[in-house]
Design a protein around this nucleic acid. Structure first.
Lengths: 200, 200, 200, 200
DNA sequence: CATGAATGAGATTTCATTCAT
DNA sequence: AATGAATGAAATCTCATTCAT
């Protein structure tokens, strides 16, 4: 469904298509959508300009495929990271750490996803809604287990996404160097465990 | 200081300038920066194309003035909303409600601010950093008062901003109708008061 | 209705628009629609490329305005040419001569009109239908006067248009030099007066 | 001689070539030359893009072969239709009816032939000139037989072609449904027999 | 202060054609 | 004989910005 036209018939074609997507990730991460030039994508992919249109009908198509692709990858990463965690708070910690690591590996993620709002609002919402669904399901189980309060899980999901999102923005995106300080992680986990208040 | 050129000398000039800013808010809210046309701004403001350049040196200038202007307005709104609150949690609640109300009145806020990242990264960060500063100061006082745990306040600030941001996105921006449901507010306040866990 | 946007406000603007139309007539007459370049039109009009789009939204618009404009001019010419003719055959002769003269002055007429079929079929048909209407009205009067047989006037109209059209193509369009030989005119008038047969 | 390359050696090759020509007739009939895409021709023919160049050196070649092919077919059809007619008027009637039938079977004829003017003016004129030759020869015999007036036969030829052409355009090309009304035919035959005037 | 005509750089997109397989 | 990937020239169109009035 994301596919534009059909998949390339030959291995050579598939390689070219992949190269275009990889190049697009870097270009859209550095430049805003409007200023991102298709010539720049093809230059980085090492193909001629016209080749782009063999694989994608237009700029929007490759951009949206990128957004959807990044979302899938991230969701898969998070799912596998939290699998087998004994309790909710451990899940949250593992999920947060995995998210921050992913952002470190895909520093263009924010810049790409946030732009999607203007390119295709549906795709943009879908990106977050699919995360929210996963969150809600996990929280629902935790409520069953008596681990989480019986409040609006939809609200909790977006609150938790917001926390990760902003921590990632501040300590991964905005910091040149490596890791997120442990005291930042600790503060977040404190919030999730005790709320704002001091340890009871 | 963000102002480009000096303020118009005549009342007529001031009115024209204001009209351009108002038009720009709606245009940049509906259209991404790259696709937002100055002709569209002048059309909505009811002036000729050339008139734009009497008041702003270029497109970037009016955009950045808009970002800075919205930030100031929002900060002032929040500050006045929480003034006089008896305790931290009350401050949070009042701040959250005020923020959501502001977003309802300025539905273009997100779309404008998030675009700023690509137009002028400094302006974009400054927008959040100024909020974070205010947050940190408030939290520091609360720590003094024994109301808040002594964890990284910078981390808490971004976490709290993230919560508001995502709740606003989900229930103000994405919902056509009026208010944020009370159970959503309740869930957030529960998180701030008790963390994820059930009421002790 | 043919107008794209509104008419220019200043005399300078009106002159530029007119220059573009004049240039377009020559370009579309020499080159087929698909190969006719807008840059060539602006070059001949002596303006910059972008200026074209101040006055016309696209190539199709200027082309169709041209077709409609030529049709109006030609109809006006023919109407004034046959006014006051004493009888039907004189009308036909005057009309034919006026048509051939017009084609001589607008040697691009055929090439422009015939292309219209592919650009906007409605405009193309309208061109001929408006001529046919005029013809039919004239023939109807002649029938009343007992000058013309009471056969399908719609059919006669198209037959007469076809004659003029092909004579013009063969002796004006395809001949470099000046006038249509008198014996050609005579042959046509013979056909209209006596049919194919010899003088009775 | 218009043929490009030699005819394919194998039956498979001949079938492919024929399929391309058939597809081209429909494509050039629906789309103007400039917008007619070779990919569209190959798609309709059910072969790959590259296959086109196995049979035709370029787009122009297939187009011109089409024009020439249609002309030959039409001339053959007309010749056989009028063979054996007892007098000139009968010939005209049979020829007209055969022409209109042919156009009904090849509704793309006009659109293809008229475009030829811009692709290869020589081919375009040749199309009509070959018809005119045939006409002239027939008329010359009729003049000998005292059936037709001794006026410019070249002029008569083009006049008669124009009549057929416009009647076909109006009642075959522009009418969705089947046949040309008999009163239209009658009007044309009246014109050929008596001229414009009423029956003497 | 205001206007609107004019500019031209630059981006997207199309497509005939070539070529290796 | 057939394929389909790749090319790159060329065309349309947009729009921020300048400028004369």
């Amino acid at each position: 469904m994301i596919m534009s036209g059909s998949l390339p018939a030959t291995a050579r074609g598939r390689a070219t298509r992949k190269a275009l997507l990889v190049a697009a990730e870097s270009v859209f991460g550095e430049t805003r959508y409007g200023a991102a030039a298709i010539t720049e994508i093809t230059r980085r992919a090492g193909v001629a300009q016209g080749t782009f249109y063999v694989y994608f009908p237009n700029k929007k198509a490759i951009f949206l495929e990128l957004v959807s692709h990044l979302g899938s990858e991230l969701r898969a990463t998070l799912t596998s990271a939290v699998t087998g965690a004994p309790d909710r708070l451990t899940r949250e910690e593992l999920g947060l750490r995995a998210f921050l690591a992913f952002v470190g590996d895909h520093r263009n993620l924010y810049r790409i996803v946030r732009q999607a709002e203007f390119i295709d609002e549906g795709a943009y919402r879908a990106y977050y809604e699919r995360f929210a669904e996963g969150y809600r399901a996990g929280l629902a189980e935790a409520v069953q287990a008596g681990e989480v309060a019986d409040v609006s899980l939809e609200a909790l999901s977006y609150a938790l996404m917001g926390i990760s999102d902003f921590i990632g923005m501040r300590w991964v995106l905005w910091e040149e160097q490596g890791g997120v300080p442990e005291d930042v992680i600790a503060a977040v986990l404190h919030l999730l465990r005790h709320g704002l208040g001091p340890v009871p």
